[in-house]
């Protein structure tokens, strides 16, 4: 949200320069589990050093920088474990850091603004959070283990039968609902609910909501446009092997 002058990242860009002006990339580095002592390395050098596909890193960074991903993205299936790790780390950020923070702001907001509307906002958030939790839990418990097992089978490390309760459709529906509700909450706070001595706390709440919104959006783009096509590729491949 701070990066007014968003820059498009390329493999030959100096990573430190980009991070300097585009702080949302700090999230990307954190989720990839790399530290940011970047010196003068280019994106390509940095990725080679950390064993990350530079193409994947560039695409993910640009998504976090607010650029819309192209419709057809192609990556190697060997990046699957890394993408899962990345997404898993985003979950930890939402659950341990962001949502408690938002909950806290709403509690404070209630203290200064006792209107019925704010009471409903709290209810709204509680319902929304239950939904997010269900989705993240579904990913951690069902989707990611399934994809990991699928990958292990693909590289021949595992021959256990797969748990087939995973559904790409359920996955997608969750995303739409979650993004929609967050957007509505923001819109209610900006457009309708009257301000009562709560300007600062409302600003903090809104900025926090915007932050989690763009972060969640990037998260769902990565899942739908990067991860799912790879999963489908592996599934197709395994089916072919089975038929032969």
């Amino acid at each position: 949200m701070y990066n007014e002058s968003r820059q498009y990242l390329k493999p030959e860009s100096k990573l430190a320069d980009i991070v300097y002006n585009n702080p949302s990339l700090l999230y990307v580095l954190e989720y990839f589990e790399v530290d940011y002592i970047l010196q003068d390395k280019t994106v390509a050098e940095f990725c080679a050093e950390h064993n990350i596909d530079a193409n994947l890193f560039t695409t993910v960074s640009n998504i976090y920088n607010g650029f819309v991903a192209e419709s057809k993205l192609e990556f190697g299936v060997e990046s699957i474990p890394l993408i899962i790790k990345f997404l898993h780390n985003t979950h930890a950020y939402y659950l341990n850091e962001k949502y408690p923070e938002i909950r806290n702001f709403i509690d404070e907001l209630r203290k200064v603004n006792s209107s019925t509307e704010i009471g409903i906002v709290e209810k709204f958030f509680t319902e929304y959070y239950a939904e997010v939790n269900e989705h993240l839990d579904y990913e951690d418990r069902v989707a990611f283990p399934y994809i990991n097992a699928l990958y292990n089978k693909y590289i021949g490390a595992d021959s256990e039968p797969l748990d087939t309760s995973f559904s790409a459709k359920v996955y997608r529906k969750h995303h739409t609902d979650i993004n929609y509700k967050l957007d509505e909450l923001k819109s209610l706070l900006i457009k309708y609910i009257s301000v009562r001595e709560d300007r600062q706390i409302r600003r903090r709440l809104l900025l926090s909501l915007c932050d989690v919104e763009s972060n969640l959006y990037a998260h769902s783009v990565i899942e739908e446009q990067i991860l799912m096509p790879l999963v489908m590729k592996v599934e197709r491949n395994l089916n072919k092997v089975k038929k032969q």
Binding site: T116, E117, I120, V121, K123, E184, L188, Y192, I193, S194
Partner: peptide
């Protein structure tokens, strides 16, 4: 919930 807030605010 959103519509309730809207109705109250307006």
């Amino acid at each position: 919930s959103g519509l309730t807030i809207y109705a109250l605010s307006n």
